[in-house]
Every structure is written in C-alpha cells, then in structure tokens.
Design a binder for these strands. Structure first.
Lengths: 338, 338
DNA sequence: CTGAAAGCGCTTACAG
DNA sequence: CTGAAAGCGCTTACAG
C-alpha cells in the first residue's frame, strides 16, 4: 500500500488538488459540503500529508532537536520526557542526540540537526565545551535555541535552569542546622558552571553561618561517580576525622560515600551526615535513604519546549524575540542520611 | 544567513544546477577539475543539501523512529544509546517516542512516525499491547520494522531479543547450586512475554533439579517496583519462613527485597539469597550488592539498527527480505546477595 | 563532459 | 466557491 497523495484524493473525488488541500486545512473559501466530503474521504483512506513536501513550502519541519550530554542519566531522561510530552501537544517530534560530554561531538550533532532543518534546538552543553562558535551558528540561522540545565553565559538566548548556588546553599544550611560544623564537599569538575555554582553555594553557607572554609575538605569528582565518592570518603575517615557531614555535587558520589561509611560502621547521620544532589531514584533505595535536592527535570523539559514554541511563534509573526531565563525551584528532600 | 541551495552555488560558479549536484555526489561523468571546484566552494560556504527536498526525490528521510515503553529506564536508555551510535555511523538520526506502556499511545506514536516518513521503525512493544493491527500497518507500507526486547509473536518481522527463559533458568540454577531449596519468585505482570518467559525459566529450573513448584511462592509485581518487592518480602518473612532465596523478575523488586531483609536483620545471602534481573547500575550500589542477569542493552540497540539497515538495503535492491531473530547472550553477574 | 527539463507532493497567490 | 499554475530544492533520465 503506497502512501496516498492529494492528487489521488482529487482524482477520486473529481476535485482539483487545490481544493482538496484547502478543504483539509479548513480554508474559509471552500464550500462546507465539499470540505466534509474531502475530510470524510481522507479519513477513510487514512491520508496523511507528506511532511517533506510540506516543508518545502512552509519551511516548518515540525521537528526539534535535543542535544544532551548523557542519555543514560536519570535527570536528563526526565528532561527528555518533559520535552517529548510538551512537543507532542503541539504535534512536534523530537530528534535526540547525545554529545557524550564531548565538545567535538556536540558541534557535530548540532550541524546534523541544522542540516535536517529542525525548527529549533534544545541544548544542554557538554562539560568540555569551551567556545560557542557552533552555538552562535544556530542563532545566526535564526533558529530558536534554548538552553536547559547546563548553559553558556556567553550566548544570547533563552534558557531554563535551576539556581544551583541557592540549592546548594539550602542543602548545606540544612546540614548546619542539624548541628554539623565540619562539612566536606565532594565537588564536580572544575569547568561546568553548575558544578562551580554548587561549590559557591557550599562556601556561601559556611560563610553565612560563621563556619571556616577549608580547601582540604573539598574533593573533586571528575567523573561524578560513586567510586570517587567511595574513595574520598575513605580518605576523609582516615585523614580528617573531624568531618561530620558530606555534601556531594550529585547523588552518585553521595551513594559511594554512604557505602563506604556503612562498611566502616560509621553511623549515618549521627557521626557523619550525607547530602546528595539531583534526587535520583536511587537516593530512595539505598540504606539509609539519601537526602538530596530535587531538580524538576520533567518541568524543565516542558518549559524548554514552551520557550522554543513561543519564540517560533514570535519569529513567524515577524515580532522581535525577547530572551527569557527561567529559574525553576528546587526542593530539599530530607531523608535518613541527614 | 539563509541556507544556501544548489542554485546559489551554480550561479556563483557559472555552472548548471545539474552539474553542481552531480559533482557533489561524485558522479563519474563530471570533469575532475569541475568536481574539485564545486566541492571546494561548497565546503567554503558550508553548503548542506536540503534534506526534505532530497527526500521528495529519493524517498529516503535518513530518519528512523524508535518507540520504547519507558524512557526513564536504565535498560532502554542503553538500547537507545546503541541505536543512536549505530545510526550515527550510517548518518541516520533517531526520533524517539515513548508509549508509556500504553497500547493506545503506541498506536498513535507509530502513526506519527509513518507520517514523518521515517525509513524504518524500531519497536519494543508496550505491556498492554494486545493486538497487532497497528504493527501490521507498518509492514504493509513496506517500511522495515524491527522488534527489540519485547516483541509480538504474531507479527512477521525481524527481532533482536534475549532468551529470557534461559537467562532465568541460569539465574535460578545458580541459586540452587548455592544450596537453596525453597525459592520464591517475584514475577512480572501476566501479559508481557518476557515476564512469562522468566517465570517459565524459573519453573523449569525447579523441575530439572527436582524441586517442588509451589504456586503460593510466586508473587506478581504488576508495577515491577521496589515497593512491591518490599511488601512481598515482608509477606514471605511472615508467612513462608521456609523460603531461602528470592528470584525477582527485575532489579527494582529485588532491591525492595534487600531493603526489607536488611531492616529485618535477615542475613543475605545466608538466610535468604536474592537474585535480580537486568543488571541496572543500582545492583552494584545497594548493600549487599545484588546478583543479577546482565542484558546487553547497547549491543541490542546496535543489532536492531543493523537489522533495519540490512533490510533497507535489500529492499532498495529489490531483493527479498529474510526475517531474522537474533538472540543475544545474557550473563549471570554474581555479587554478594547470592 | 555539461545542461535543460521533468517531477517528487505540497501550499498559496491569483484568476475566473 | 473552484482550479490552473508557480515554486519550494533537490535528483536523474535524457539530449547534445
């Protein structure tokens, strides 16, 4: 069964292609009867217009591209779900590409999307991305670009993010209010803005509550893995027995920390409290359950799509676009580990 | 900066559109010099052919569609990675859609993909899918369809799967060889084939080793959640103190079981051993670590794309397609819980 | 070796 | 209210 075309329908109903096309799109200048005949027939034969032919005229592909640093990542899966849900409502479909945290791959993927004529690109930049030429190329082509979660301060476009600094501040503040005074930080890599911001939130909380900041209590998890969390916690136990709480840049290192503490029979949270970040499913499954900061991934995805859609509408109408930066609220989830 | 077209290049180089097009595609009947001029210029101005216009002629969109039951799922994320990796090598891009385990949504998503003229569809069917009319519609349109992981026995097409029955058999056999005699099974929902097959593997292992099968030792986890695993384990402890091992249909219920056993101070694996299925990242993070069956998700994705690509090549050449069923090897991962 | 022309399937300005 | 025609940007059979 070949796909039907407007021509086939026109022939079957003894109408012109023009009229069939107009009828299907509810143009006001088509006889109501004709419209109904056409629509009924189209439905009967299950006609769907050829998207590519339509693109050639309308310049709209009804496709957006999403580039994320990692596919296999609870948070980004959630963002993707949000994007796909919002996209579906406007009859958009989503091409998903992963940069694997690589700058080169990110560049390549963006080029592929541009070549496919997607109507917009939603991007969370890779940790290793250090310049923005490839990003500026999108903006030059007047294709809406929306950042989510990890963004570049250098590019002029809309974004939907969380306030990492504030979220980290709140998390550390909670530890302090639990009576903790010597708080270590398992930080993320040095480059990404959100890892920097979480670190800054940590420092700010210490400062505001009159606690001393000590460089040697900060450990860099380049892979943000549980192995790193495990190893650094081992080091903490051996070399820094005064430490009574650990704030991790993400849940994975925090889970590693819990594992190490459990094995060493150190009581959580009484001796050492642990706080994660991102509220992965796993935080609720470890023993003791892990306190964390919830990032609204699904909502972030929905908002990102909505921003894209709004921009596109403005561009279509020829109106000027005002870039927005949406900051979503995070929420402290207190569990047994703190 | 508008996108350039063949026309622009032809004008700039004083050639015809035909020649430019041929030169870029390395047609043999174009002067080598001309070819080089064209290619150099195209590169300079960063020309990329319009994919939609090309489709209208070639009927190839260089797009495939993937429909998975759940996006936020470690195993399917891995499959997706495999698909995307293999697709990238053939310059394909992937439209990802989720059926959310809903039959209706699955139907809808497939229709959307068909409308977008994807070159092929890779599908893992929803638990609630009970008929295959929507699937047959794909096959009728002569678009390659490949099943992965969850398939329908009723449809005639290629698939890449694991042998759930055998994998479950091996897992239970291992428990038996550890000296366990009264093995409970936390099974999945009644409909999906892989949940049935894992149950059958469980029964077969009991049978083969002369252990009695007892209906009341089988518990159905409709959500395949850790909460169900937790609750059923509670029930096992209270009502079936003779049980000395639990084989779960997936890691989530197994993790719930571990949590319950930990809380009740039941020693794992000495008093009760636990075996999961799928080898999620989490199985390595709980205490004790969870034994499980590794499903080669990435490889499954790669194979699924390769099957699609092979079929497409055959169709293009007008040769007849022979459907294949690829069965990938699983691997028993023994950790502390067994 | 080069190029004019048809056609893929749509949309839409225009004529009647 | 209906329809002929142009054109979106390609590819390719055909002519020269």
């Amino acid at each position: 069964m070949k796909n039907l075309t407007l021509k086939d329908i026109a022939a079957a109903l003894n109408l012109s292609i023009t009229t069939v096309s107009k009828a299907l799109k509810d143009y006001p200048d088509v006889n109501t009867n004709t419209k109904e005949r056409v629509k009924a027939y189209a439905k009967k034969v299950n006609f769907t217009p050829n998207a590519h032919a339509a693109f050639l005229r309308t310049q709209q592909s009804k496709l957006i591209g999403v580039v994320i640093p990692r596919l296999n990542h609870f948070f980004f899966s959630n963002v993707l779900r949000g994007i796909m849900k919002a996209a579906e409502e406007e009859d958009y479909m989503v091409i998903v590409l992963s940069s694997d945290e690589s700058y080169e791959l990110e560049k390549k993927q963006i080029n592929r999307l541009l070549q496919q004529n997607v109507d917009g690109i939603l991007l969370s930049i890779a940790d290793s991305t250090h310049d923005t030429k490839h990003i500026d190329a999108i903006i030059e082509q007047k294709i809406p670009l929306i950042f989510f979660d990890k963004y570049s301060k250098l590019s002029n476009c809309s974004s939907v993010v969380i306030n990492d600094q504030k979220a980290a501040f709140n998390a550390v503040e909670h530890l302090i209010k639990q009576g903790k005074k010597n708080i270590a930080h398992l930080r993320g890599p040095l480059l990404p803005q959100n890892s920097i911001d979480r670190f800054l939130g940590y420092r700010k909380a210490l400062e505001q509550y009159g606690l001393e900041y000590r460089k040697e209590w900060v450990f860099t998890c380049d892979q943000i893995s549980n192995e790193e969390g495990y190893a650094y916690t081992q080091e903490i136990i051996e070399k820094h027995p005064e430490i009574d709480a650990i704030f991790a840049v993400a849940d994975m290192p925090a889970v590693g920390a819990i594992k190490c503490l459990n094995e060493q029979k150190i009581v959580i949270p009484d001796q050492i409290a642990v706080m994660g970040f991102s509220n992965w499913r796993i935080s609720n499954l470890v023993t003791p359950t892990l306190s964390s900061v919830n990032q609204p991934g699904i909502k972030m995805g929905e908002k990102a799509f909505e921003l894209f859609y709004k921009e596109q509408q403005l561009i279509k109408k020829g109106e000027s676009v005002v870039y927005e930066k949406i900051e979503l609220d995070t929420k402290l989830i207190i569990r047994q580990s703190s």
